[in-house]
Amino acid sequence: MTAAAPCWTARVLTIFPEMFPGPLGLSLAGKALESGLWALETVDMRAFARDKHRSVDDTPFGGGPGMVMRPDVVDAAIAATADADTGDADAAPAIYLSPRGRLLTQSIVRELAARPSVTLLCGRYEGVDERVLAARQVDEISLGDFVLSGGEPAAIALIDAVVRLLPGVLGAPATLEEESFERGLLEYPHYTRPAEWQGRAVPEVLLSGHHERIRAWRRRQAEETTRARRPDLWTRYVAGLKNLDQAAAEEEGSKR
């Protein structure tokens, strides 16, 4: 029995292709990769270097420490792999994993999962020459306000986040609906056996078997956790509720 055609492809431009699949070859992502639910392509950017040393970087203009990835090398790598599914280089710009990019959110992950493929540019050294980023209209995405030694760990995290949303990867679709960020809230706390551990008991409501009470408790816990730990998310969540209430009121008024 042959595997089905992959529904989503991750193309990674890197000078360390041996870092892949790494953890993406294990657990759910690894099983999905093996069964053909998604595909991984790695492109060694050193193959596009123009000297015998396969140099991909050079010293920065204006001085300063470190090295910068050359625009000609990066451009050649992007050009050779740009949207290989359609041949249209403008259909899906490459994504550069960069601390100065827009923050990766679950909403963006869902957008990427809806594409047939993504091309991820993994920077090294001090970064990539700005001219190629502008010329190729590269989309910059950040995992957060911290710095990694290269874009590869960030690419692995982004791919993992997308793969778990692909059809057939998770057994129960309802699992995704209850996760953090899917409804604008952090996830509620979880408990399992034993019912009492080191003098700490599982909340009684979870043992009640009353599904409506359990659902209400979980929603309250999610709201309280979000309000305490992520006031930024809580503000957006409350604003969203107000907008829904206003829309409902306007719809009700139009029926009168």
Rank of each mutant, 00 (worst) to 15 (best):
L207N: 10
A201I: 00
L112P: 06
K242R: 15
E41W: 00
D75K: 08
E212A: 15
F20T: 01
S35T: 14
K52F: 00
A174P: 01
A161H: 06
A4R: 13
E41T: 15
F16E: 12
D72V: 00
Q221P: 04
G30I: 10
D145H: 10
G64H: 06
A5C: 03
R102N: 08
A113C: 08
M69V: 06
Q137M: 04
P60N: 08
L148Y: 01
D72Y: 01
A228H: 12
D160T: 11
I95Q: 03
L166K: 03
P173I: 02
D88T: 02
L185V: 05
R136N: 13
R164Y: 02
L166F: 01
L13Y: 02
P167A: 08
A76F: 08
R220L: 13
G66Q: 05
G168Q: 06
P17S: 02
E187M: 04
K31C: 06
A77T: 08
S208R: 07
A32W: 02
A82E: 10
T9R: 15
P173V: 04
T192V: 07
S254N: 13
I95C: 03
R50A: 04
E178I: 05
C122H: 03
A174D: 15
F20Y: 09
I78W: 01
H210D: 15
R193L: 11
T86Y: 00
R11V: 15
H210Y: 07
S180L: 07
A92G: 04
V56Y: 05
T14C: 01
T81G: 02
I214F: 01
E196W: 01
D44F: 00
E196L: 10
A201C: 11
P17A: 00
I156K: 01
V147L: 05
G150L: 00
Y191S: 08
E179W: 08
V128F: 02
A239H: 12
D160R: 06
V73P: 11
L112N: 05
F61S: 08
S254H: 13
G25T: 11
R200V: 14
Q221V: 02
G30R: 09
Y237L: 03
Y188S: 10
A3H: 12
A79E: 14
Q221K: 15
